[in-house]
Design a protein around this nucleic acid. Structure first.
Lengths: 326, 326
DNA sequence: TCAAAAGTGTTATCCTTACACCCATGT
DNA sequence: ACATGGGTGTAAGGATAACACTTTTGA
């Protein structure tokens, strides 16, 4: 219970830097688009000698490497798994990675990115089953669920499964009458990982329940466990949206209510009811009209709004509590 | 953006191991009761060579050192701050600590603890202002708020304060008409730390706005940043209670509804409305009657209940959504 | 018979959801 | 004039919050 000797380990900070542009949420990935290498999240070492806290360290290397201006930053989770970063026979250096979510505005930094070997990639490339804006994604019924149901059945006679694969499937993917919960992004990814159905799992030496050749690629894979970190980031952002005014970190200073709604929809991956959304924003007094209108949308000109920073000081939890289906 | 060399750091796992007994939530602390040393949370090194994941590592040293059986385990936050663990002039080894919340039943392990140099300590000793079960704690109006208001005023003319000290005070401590939010345990502790009003802050070299001699001890201090980790644990547990059936990890297999209510009240630190609490538990179908009754309470015998494990598989988010004042 | 705790029934209110119609502009 | 998106009012239903009284035991 005391000051035992501790094993030295390397600590890296891995960031999911998110922006929304043209109704597409995107995440900054390192590496050339054309290279055959897997996409990976940007990461940097944490050096306690130069930086007092993780967050300062993170901001520092993000700034240095990408010239990006990030606003909101939040710690997600710390991953220490072996076997997620490396093959079973690997005995190399051990690494702990602290995952972070950071929000930015793409327009701010279009130029900055050209220098760095980094680009914004729509996040639904990595999680196609998470985008329900145009209805239920086809990949669910065509590939994912049939395979997962097979996996659930194949574990049927193993008595050592605690909660039951079928039940987990119901909750995470909303089968059997359960509702789809857009916040369970991480749970869904982890289930796919456990079932050996994402490339990362097979790379880590996990065997799927069905023949590998029968498994189509389920979203683009990423390096190391970066897709897991991204899943954590999306889940956290989707949840946070509902009780903190974080969307505005992703919006330009002035915007129409429809633009705001589209951004929220882009993040949460589902449709929102227009009237209810507007009332929500209005009664929460999250925004105020600038007096200007925008004619850029083609139709009746839309009133422009800006975020009311004061709400942060007025109400305890100002967010967009998008209800059942808002 | 790539495989830069990483600085080696030591990684420790620090656990807030919580149990509730006799309507008092308590946390396991290391060190002798009589010793003059500050209480500290148990912690152990993370050795990636022996343990594949943090959680496995944590369970392993907790088991080895305390013979305690912990059920639920959850990662809280990873702290990398220098200056929170050490004095400004310290240049020793750098440590990152991953904080964990673990739940256990005290009765399970009364004996186990005698061997280990550890004991359960009521958590409200460290946070007396968090216990509202007998009404608003006197320490708030007698000590904390007058001092904090002075601190807020003293920063008035400093234009470089982003959200305004007065506003933060309102939200965290519910002054000026704002409601008290029992989940903001960490925010309150951090505010006290920033104001230099807890011993840990002064130990770290932070100067309070008022004369040190005028500040009474505000709760018992802990070693390092362990009180901050405990605040994180309490906050997380209070929040989780509302959407996951975690209370039952702290209850004996059979219990009366009043015992369940008292446990929830002990954790959330406030009173609950009896009828509404009962209806909540009932309509959520979280428990089922065993058929037995307990006459131990002195009065009409109470029916005994047990947790219905099945709910975990039936409903997506089974918790005790204790509303405004339930 | 009295104290002490268990247990129940009902109503007012608010918040959430759903629905359908009118308005201002560019082409 | 018409297509396109912007903008509003209202009613039904469910969940929440507040209320006070009866029941069963031990002393």
């Amino acid at each position: 219970m005391a000051d035992t000797h501790l094993t030295p380990i390397e600590v890296g900070l891995t960031a999911a830097i998110v922006a929304v542009e043209a109704e597409e949420p995107a995440v900054l990935v390192a590496g050339d688009a054309r290279a055959e290498t897997r996409a990976g999240l940007p990461f940097g070492p944490f050096d306690p000698l130069s930086h007092r806290t993780f967050e300062i360290g993170l901001r520092s290397w993000v700034q240095a490497q990408t010239a990006l201006h990030v606003g909101y930053v939040e710690q997600l989770y710390t991953f220490g798994d072996r076997g997620r970063h490396a093959r079973p026979d690997d005995t190399g250096a051990h690494m702990v990675s602290v995952g972070y979510l950071a929000l930015t505005r793409m327009a701010d930094n279009a130029a900055a990115l050209r220098a760095a070997a980094a680009r914004f990639e729509p996040w639904y490339r990595f999680f196609p089953w998470e985008d329900w804006r145009d209805g239920r994604p086809a990949i669910l019924d065509e590939s994912i669920l049939p395979l997962l149901e097979q996996w659930a059945r194949s574990g049927k006679d193993d008595p050592a499964r605690p909660p039951g694969r079928g039940e987990r499937l119901r909750h995470t993917f909303g089968t059997g009458g359960s509702p789809w919960d857009e916040e369970k992004v991480l749970d869904r990814y982890e289930l796919l990982y456990e079932a050996g159905m994402v490339e990362e799992a097979r790379r880590d030496g996990r065997n799927p329940a069905v023949a590998k050749s029968k498994i189509p690629p389920l979203g683009e894979p990423m390096r190391f466990d970066h897709r897991r970190i991204l899943a954590t980031a999306i889940a956290r952002l989707r949840a946070k949206l509902k009780y903190r005014p974080v969307v505005f970190e992703l919006m330009p200073p002035e915007f129409t209510l429809t633009e705001l709604q589209r951004t929220v929809e882009a993040i949460s991956g589902r449709h929102l009811h227009k009237q209810n959304f507007r009332r929500l924003v209005e009664t929460a007094a999250l925004v105020e009209p600038t007096g200007e209108t925008s004619t850029a949308t083609g139709g009746r000109p839309a009133a422009l709004f800006r975020f009311r920073r004061e709400v942060m000081q007025e109400r305890p939890a100002p967010g967009l509590r998008l209800g059942g289906r808002a």
